[in-house]
């Protein structure tokens, strides 16, 4: 589904991703871990098409298409969803209005009729239950005055509404209490289908108790220096990143 080969990306001339390879297939869950500043969010932004980053080398193929050719909004409409590490506030725009616009843009792209107000409300009710989000939250402006946890839940709610094929969740578990963590994990698990895939970026092994990853990767200084199964996360928790650094064959 997603195939990243030898990707290098920079911002303002500073190279952040340095020859990265990653292969994600349908139905899989991948976890990406790595120390602060190693380039996890940058990778997510580059996949989503954020133009502040320059792609200097490499290829990214998504569902057989050259992803790097597509503008960010087209990537989104093609089913790529990014759960932001720091969701931004949009004052005066209600979540309902925001998401209705988003869904109808996607539908238009896919050649479908827009959802009517009633249809959209029904869909929203259904997804609210699924991710256990409070009813009044959706009438509020996007992320405005939300607590840290509410912002993260709101990202999952949006994901549920958009039903992406490839979801990248950037530290969606950070700052969540244990109940909220379960809600987020539950959301991801319920939305899991054989034809979609999820990449979770996290610092904590505890999320992986709830979302079982097929692969765990360690991102270090712009490269994936080690990959393994869920046991790698446990090992990391125990030994820290220094251990992988030493383990990693030079030049990878």
């Amino acid at each position: 589904m997603l195939s990243i080969k030898n990707l290098s990306a920079s911002i303002n001339g500073k190279t952040i991703i340095k020859g990265l390879n990653l292969e994600v297939k349908e139905g899989e869950v991948h976890a990406i871990m790595g120390p602060n500043g190693s380039g996890k969010s940058t990778l997510a932004s580059v996949i989503a098409g954020r133009e502040t980053f320059d792609v200097d080398e490499g290829t990214v193929t998504y569902m057989g298409k050259d992803l790097l050719e597509l503008p960010a909004e087209t990537r989104a409409r093609e089913g790529i969803f990014l759960g932001f590490q720091y969701p931004v506030e949009i004052p005066g725009v209600s979540i309902a209005n925001f998401m209705r616009t988003a869904i109808n843009e996607k539908r238009k792209y896919l050649g479908l009729d827009p959802l009517t107000g009633a249809e959209f409300l029904r869909l929203m009710e259904e997804k609210k239950k699924m991710v256990d989000i409070q009813s009044k939250l959706t009438n509020r402006s996007v992320n405005e005055g939300f607590s840290g946890g509410e912002k993260k839940k709101n990202e999952i709610f949006q994901m549920a509404l958009l039903e992406p094929r490839l979801a990248i969740l950037d530290e969606t578990d950070s700052g969540l209490d244990i109940d909220a963590l379960k809600v987020v994990a539950n959301g991801v698990n319920k939305l899991r289908r054989p034809d979609n895939a999820t990449v979770v970026i996290t610092h904590y092994q505890r999320l992986l108790d709830y979302i079982t990853p097929d692969f765990v990767h360690v991102l270090y200084d712009g490269r994936i220096i080690k990959s393994g199964d869920k046991n790698l996360a446990l090992e990391l928790e125990e030994k820290g990143y220094e251990w992988v650094k030493k383990e990693a064959p030079a030049g990878v």
Binding site: A48, G49, R50, T52, P71, A72, E73, A76, R77, F81, L82, F84, Y86, P87, V88, E89, I90, P91, G92, V93, N97, F98, M99, T101, A102, E105, K106, Y109, S141, Q158, L162
Partner: peptide, 25 residues
């Protein structure tokens, strides 16, 4: 740029994004 990219990432194009943000404002 954060706000605009947030909208783009949800599939809303640049004009739509500016429209939403300005109307919210």
């Amino acid at each position: 740029e954060d706000q605009l990219f947030y909208c783009l990432q949800r599939g809303i194009d640049m004009e739509g994004a500016i429209g939403l943000i300005v109307n919210g404002y």
